[in-house]
């Protein structure tokens, strides 16, 4: 089965084409969706791609959250369908209240653009296509990737196993030194409680083609495809 994966393009998105390409490369059917579209063209899953939607005005993701296509995403989430938010997509999911906490300016103030290692955390109950304890090499490129939450939010995501990815050393050791943005508990990716929403700052769509470098991103697409009842064909 070929999963149909929608990728929403906002004014200011710039990783939408790479996301569409990654879906095709891994054996899925990419479905381009415009932010003003009121439905997701019957796709099985959806990706909110990276970029600078609406110029990052007010706060990152703050305005994209009101787009008609994001209202359709909210209905998808309620229906239990999978949603993957990358970078700006992660920021939009937090602003929309579909994931806890918020993403603020990197602790070092600088925009970071480099390859990082992230460790896949223990597989939550019933999460398909997700193998814990792997170290994935995936690039980051963001100015506002420091995840923060209230003390209650932080305790809750840890207790309920919502942390999907943490920054780590090439050997999988967790240490602040390997976290590019000061993120709380070295969090690089979070899932919702139900497990059908995943947001992360690293860009899996840039790490799927062996001709272009490391392919740590495939593991993230494997989860998305598995949630659609399919497998990646890498």
């Amino acid at each position: 089965m070929k999963p149909r994966i929608a990728v929403i393009t906002f004014p200011g998105s710039n990783d939408d084409r790479d996301a569409l390409r990654a879906v095709r490369l891994l054996g899925g059917e990419p479905v381009p969706v415009w932010h003003a579209d009121r439905d997701l063209h019957g796709a099985d899953g959806v990706i909110l791609p990276g970029g600078f939607s609406y110029g990052d005005y007010l706060r990152t993701g703050a305005i994209a959250r009101f787009a008609p296509a994001v209202k359709a995403v909210t209905r998808y989430v309620e229906a239990g369908r999978p949603v993957l938010g990358v970078c700006n997509g992660f920021q939009i999911l937090c602003e929309a209240g579909l994931l806890p906490g918020a993403l603020i300016r990197n602790a070092g103030l600088s925009f970071v653009c480099r390859w990082v290692n992230v460790r896949t955390e223990a597989r939550p109950e019933g999460w398909p296509g997700w193998e814990a304890g792997r170290v994935l090499q995936i690039p980051v490129k963001h100015g506002e990737g420091q995840w923060v939450g209230s003390p209650e939010d932080v305790a809750r995501v840890e207790e309920r196993g919502q942390v999907a990815l943490r920054y780590c050393s090439p050997d999988g050791l967790e240490d602040e030194a390997f976290t590019p943005n000061g993120s709380t508990h070295n969090i690089a990716g979070l899932r919702n409680e139900r497990g059908n929403v995943l947001g992360l700052m690293p860009h899996p769509e840039h790490a799927v083609d062996p001709d272009l470098g490391p392919t740590g991103g495939i593991a993230v697409f494997a989860w998305l495809f598995a949630m659609c009842g399919a497998e990646v064909s890498a």
Binding site: L58, R59, A62, C94, E95, G101, A102, I104, V148, G149, S150, D153
Partner: peptide, 8 residues
Amino acid sequence: RFLSNPVI
């Protein structure tokens, strides 16, 4: 609801 994010 919009101008600020009460989380942060």
